[in-house]
C-alpha cells in the first residue's frame, strides 16, 4: 500500500488523475474501519488532511461554501446560525472524538444512506462542488447519490466543497436510533423553511437506497402555505396540513427491514419526525 499526502488541492487532483483507484481518506471514520476490519486493501491511500484550503468555509452573498475537509465539530461551533439544520445533524454524529475528525466531504464520499449530513443538505438544496484535473463541476446533492454507498464521482474526481444557501428560515433535523447517543440512524428527517423563496425543503435518511427528498410533501406544504398566505400571517398550522405533510413524507420513503429496524417502523417514524420537525420549525418561524 502506498500513502500520499498532497499539501495542495492541485497536487491532490494530480495524484487522483494519475491514480484513480486510490482511496481517499480525510477523517478516517469510514475508511479506517474498512482497513481495520480487513474489508478493503486499497493500493494507495491519499490523505487530504494536509490541504489547508479544504478545511475552510466562506460566505459569498447568500451562499455558504463549506470545504470538504470541515469537520462536524467545526460545523457545530461555527455554522449553527448559517446552516442550523446541518449543525443539528452534526451534533447527532457519533461522539466528540468522531465529530473532531469526521468531515462533511467524507460523509458525502461514503454516500451511506444513513449519512447524517445528507438530509439537511437535501433539504437546503445544497450543491456538491466536484473537481478533477480535467476541470470542475457542480452537482445538486439530490443528483449526487446513485445507490447505496455509490455516487456520481468519476474515479479521478474529488469533492471540493458543498454550497448551501445561508439559512433564511428555520431548519430542523431529527434522527431515530435505539440508544440515547452514538447511533447510526434507523431513520432521519431534515426540514428547511425558506420564507424568502416561499420554499420547503426536506431530506430523509436511512429509508431508501440513497438519501432522498420528500418532494410531494414539499410541494403540498409549500402550496398550502402560499395559498393561505401563511408565510405572511404566520398563523398556527392546520393539523390536517401537518398530518398530510407527515404522511407524504413517510410515503416518499422506500425503506427495508434490516438489523436496525423494520421498514414499517421506519415509515411510521418518518411520519412522526416530519410532523414534529414541522411543528418545531413553524413555531420558531412564528416566534421570530
Amino acid at each position: 500500500m502506498e500513502f500520499l499526502a498532497p499539501t495542495s488541492w492541485d497536487e491532490a487532483l494530480a495524484v487522483k488523475a494519475e491514480h484513480p483507484e486510490a482511496e481517499v481518506i480525510a477523517g478516517g471514520t469510514d475508511v479506517m474501519v474498512d482497513l481495520n476490519f480487513d474489508r478493503r486493501r486499497p493500493a494507495m491511500l491519499v490523505d487530504l488532511t494536509r490541504i489547508a484550503d479544504l478545511a475552510t468555509w466562506q460566505i459569498d452573498g447568500s451562499v455558504l461554501t463549506i470545504g470538504a475537509g470541515v469537520t462536524y465539530a467545526r460545523i457545530i461551533d461555527e455554522l449553527s446560525t448559517l446552516a442550523p439544520g446541518l449543525a443539528i445533524a452534526s451534533r447527532t454524529v457519533g461522539s466528540p472524538q468522531i465529530r473532531n475528525r469526521g468531515t462533511i466531504g467524507g460523509n458525502l464520499g461514503s454516500a451511506s444512506p444513513a449519512g447524517d449530513a445528507h438530509p439537511p443538505l437535501l433539504a437546503t438544496k445544497a450543491t456538491v462542488e466536484v473537481a478533477s484535473a480535467r476541470g470542475s463541476r457542480s452537482v445538486p446533492v439530490e443528483k449526487f447519490f446513485t445507490g447505496a454507498k455509490r455516487h456520481v464521482l468519476a474515479p479521478d474526481e474529488l469533492i471540493a466543497a458543498v454550497t448551501v444557501p445561508v439559512a433564511a428560515g428555520p431548519q430542523q433535523f431529527a434522527k431515530v436510533g435505539t440508544r440515547n447517543a452514538m447511533v447510526i440512524a434507523v431513520t432521519s428527517f431534515a426540514l428547511a423553511l425558506d420564507p424568502h423563496a416561499h420554499a420547503v425543503g426536506t431530506g430523509i435518511g436511512s429509508a431508501a437506497p440513497t438519501p432522498i427528498r420528500a418532494e410531494e410533501a414539499e410541494r403540498v406544504l409549500a402550496g398550502e402555505l402560499a395559498a393561505a398566505d401563511q408565510w405572511e400571517h404566520r398563523r398556527p398550522l392546520d393539523d390536517h396540513l401537518v398530518d398530510h405533510f407527515a404522511r407524504l413524507s413517510a410515503e416518499a420513503a422506500a425503506p427495508i427491514d434490516d438489523v436496525r429496524g423494520t421498514a414499517a417502523y421506519r415509515r411510521h417514524a418518518l411520519a412522526v419526525l416530519a410532523r414534529r420537525t414541522l411543528s418545531w420549525a413553524w413555531s420558531e418561524y412564528q416566534r421570530n
Binding site: F3, I25, M32, V33, L35, L45, D47, T49, N100
Partner: peptide, 10 residues
C-alpha cells in the same frame, strides 16, 4: 480523537 481511525501517515 479515536486513534484507531487515524491512518499512520496522517
Amino acid at each position: 480523537v479515536c486513534s484507531c481511525l487515524v491512518a499512520a501517515g496522517q
